[in-house]
Design a protein around this nucleic acid. Structure first.
Lengths: 341, 341
DNA sequence: CTTGTTTACTTAAACGTTTAAGCATATTTT
DNA sequence: AAAATATGCTTAAACGTTTAAGTAAACAAG
């Protein structure tokens, strides 16, 4: 088995001390007044031996790992995949590497991941926290490692967070449905304690109270039973003498499950039922009547998270900062005004 | 700013040497014959000070980082997101952490990422290589770090690779379309040198030669111009006196672009045009006539990649091994036998 | 011809671990 | 009572890097 080249190997080959080699290869020749030809010689040997600096040793010395840890809730969801991508890009632009893990909405996995990443001496963490992870977050605060939350957040914990105007976005979506003449607007959301989801529910409820006479038609499904309970929810919305004429989904996953069932039932969108969803999805574009949705500014969110985290890394005493970014309601066919009958 | 707890801190607090603390906290008390009460005392202090072992120091000592690097071609594509997820899961099951990066199909980015990961002393690499990265791969072979390729591969380079039966899968898909009565089957693929895509093309071509009288209707689009060129391809397939009655997409991204346009044109699937695609997508399920597709065994592929890589890590002299996993053609409405007219 | 400065290098310590080897002291075996 | 063994700890070196401080030779200034 081949061995890796170290400064020592190069030093030996060149007949000098490792210090000198280090100076040259970190471009500190000026400062260290290294002879021209020696510098050239060292570089030549380094390239011949295929030298790659050992980042681990460097980290140990410097106390920084130039690494940030990222824990997403579910990497197989393109929404989080895209966030991961923007974070990785922005981190790399700042010469940081990303170590990542997916908690898959599992509290234990999330705790494990936090520990693994801390052990690896990440300089900071970006978290999309799982439901019920308040304790883990509070525990994290005791560590000297800065972190920021993104997408989901805990208003009662004073840490840096990147979020969107969940309440307002929801409110606007419902207002739009009311304006297009819908009179029985349902919502399907997760049964959860996650604040951002509940803000979306609040937006729905308050928009109805303000703009419509109808009663609330809020249905909840558990993440762990998304298929069955979304179907139940839709059954409930569509049954009875006065079925819903619109449905608002709190996330893309819910919408996709729901639309599958809506297709099976033969319900027509938007004639029988208008549809609006939070989040984007390729499937929304491809639907026979493209789905109106609330676009989250993923790029801005990812960049803001990295930027904020780097500030915390640079200044350990920087106070927590909350960033709230606006969303956009993208109106398409699925919420078209119904034709008069 | 708080500081991290080290063995030294604990040793000082307990009035012993760091060595003793190390023995206790790595559960080598037996071997090192540490006194019972001292062990207890050390553990107590460690937990009180919230000690987390410094993995970097440990790595420097051991020469292993217990980390594997993963470079995917595009993390925002759920296909790669899912691969990343399975790899991360399987790695964690083996007490490895994953560092990842997305090359975004960019050769330069890919090269940068390889270097970054090597600098970080990953114990091994899993790559979904970009088009044209043969040189990078050959360069990698000179390094003492084992790696495996997944999804895409270079038959002319003798390294460990995990792939699927691209040729056969394509062949079967076309045979299926022929069997359901299609007589003018088109294919839309990438214009690329990537071997796995070209195997898919070969499957199409040979299946036609064997089972059908029709001429080849192969259209190519560049990844970088996917939108316009997919549209052009479809225009070409559908024009003329004898338009295509089926189209086979070489990837999910191509299919999604294509289907968007097919919708715009008002072409009916499967009545006017049958559709089959490689890869999965939620959008395929949601389409008004769910798309027949070739399912890649992502879980098996990811697990095989990790398993194979770990074998290479354990045994530096293990010869390269190629793993080929079978796919499954999932037949749905989009390729239903057309009704007789 | 001292003294001072510049040039080109080396020495050595440090980062936080691990672990073989060493060293008292206490206990058991002959 | 001497020898052997067990017990409970410490010492020190090592991993690969960085960097302040030191040194020796060459050269310039007074």
């Amino acid at each position: 088995m081949k061995k890796k080249t170290s400064l020592k190997d190069i030093a030996q080959e060149a007949g000098v001390s490792t210090a000198l080699v280090s100076y040259v290869l970190t471009n500190k020749e000026e400062k260290a007044r290294v002879g021209q030809e020696m510098a050239k010689k060292i570089r030549k040997i380094a390239s011949r031996l295929n030298y790659q600096p050992n980042h681990i040793a460097r980290s140990l010395k410097s106390g920084r790992s130039d690494t940030i840890g990222l824990i997403v809730a579910d990497i197989s969801n393109p929404f989080f995949g895209n966030i991961a991508r923007t974070i990785e890009d922005e981190a790399k632009r700042n010469n940081y590497t990303v170590i990542f893990g997916s908690s898959d909405e599992n509290l234990e996995k999330s705790g494990d991941l936090i520990n693994v990443l801390l052990n690896r001496q990440v300089d900071g963490l970006i978290l999309i926290p799982t439901e019920g992870s308040e304790q883990q977050i509070k525990q994290l605060q005791k560590q000297p490692v800065p972190f920021v939350l993104i997408d989901r957040y805990f208003p009662q914990i004073p840490v840096s967070q990147i979020g969107i105007n969940n309440y307002q976005a929801s409110y606007n979506a419902i207002a739009h449905l009311v304006k297009t003449g819908r009179q029985r607007i349902g919502m399907i959301a997760y049964k959860t304690a996650l604040y951002h989801i509940n803000e979306r529910k609040r937006g729905y409820t308050e928009a109805l109270a303000r703009h419509s006479q109808q009663p609330s038609l809020m249905k909840l499904a558990r993440y762990s039973h998304i298929r069955e309970e979304t179907r139940q929810a839709i059954d409930q919305l569509l049954q009875g003498r006065k079925p819903a004429d619109a449905v608002f989904f709190a996330t893309n996953s819910l919408a996709i499950e729901g639309l599958k069932y809506i297709n099976e039932l033969g319900v027509r969108v938007p004639e029988d039922l208008a549809v609006v969803s939070f989040d984007e999805s390729e499937a929304f574009d491809l639907y026979y009547s493209p789905i109106t949705f609330i676009r989250q500014p993923i790029l801005e969110m990812g960049n803001a998270a990295v930027r904020l985290l780097l500030e915390h890394i640079k200044d350990g005493d920087k106070p927590a900062e909350n960033v709230c970014i606006d969303t956009e309601l993208v109106i398409r066919q699925s919420s078209n005004r119904p034709k008069k009958k």
